[in-house]
């Protein structure tokens, strides 16, 4: 063995050449947490906010280490297996065929509320 075994996640080890990168602030305030929750359509209780601020700070410090391994000249990873030959033919499927129509009743049965024909929601327009 030519070098000491490396430790996954070992902060002392810098196996990838550091590239100069712009560091982002590794924390988010309460106001930003509220804004993200709104974007996520997720209600958060006031009592949760300090915990979420702390969680975000820890997670962002953790994922900020990616800056050390970043090579801005690399193209971002993308899925290479999807290609035109794997796309299905553009035709309606028959009932009973894989991917064929599923009766509307089967979907409505899983809806939290329906009127027998439609999914129902609270009134949106006056």
């Amino acid at each position: 063995m030519t070098s000491a075994p490396a430790t996954p996640g070992d902060p002392e080890r810098t196996p990838v050449e550091r590239t100069p990168v712009e560091r982002t602030p590794a924390s988010l305030g309460a106001e930003e947490v509220h804004r993200i929750a709104e974007l996520a359509r997720l209600r958060i209780e006031p009592a949760e906010v300090p915990m979420l601020v702390e969680h975000f700070s820890r997670m962002l410090r953790f994922v900020d280490s990616l800056a050390e391994a970043d090579d801005p000249s690399l193209p971002p990873w993308q899925l290479e297996s999807a290609s035109a030959e794997t796309l299905r033919s553009d035709r309606p499927r028959e009932p009973g065929e894989p991917g064929g129509p599923i009766p509307a009743e089967a979907w409505r049965a899983n809806a939290p509320e329906s009127d027998g024909a439609w999914f129902t929601v609270p009134r949106v327009v006056g």
Binding site: L42, P75, P76, W77
Partner: peptide, 27 residues
């Protein structure tokens, strides 16, 4: 996880987190 994912995809953070992670994924 939904909140963290929403943040890394938000306009202000996408380059610094999501796209950077995709480059590291390639590495």
């Amino acid at each position: 996880r939904i909140l963290l994912g929403t943040f890394v995809l938000s306009a202000a953070a996408q380059e610094a987190y999501y796209r950077r992670a995709l480059r590291v994924r390639r590495r």
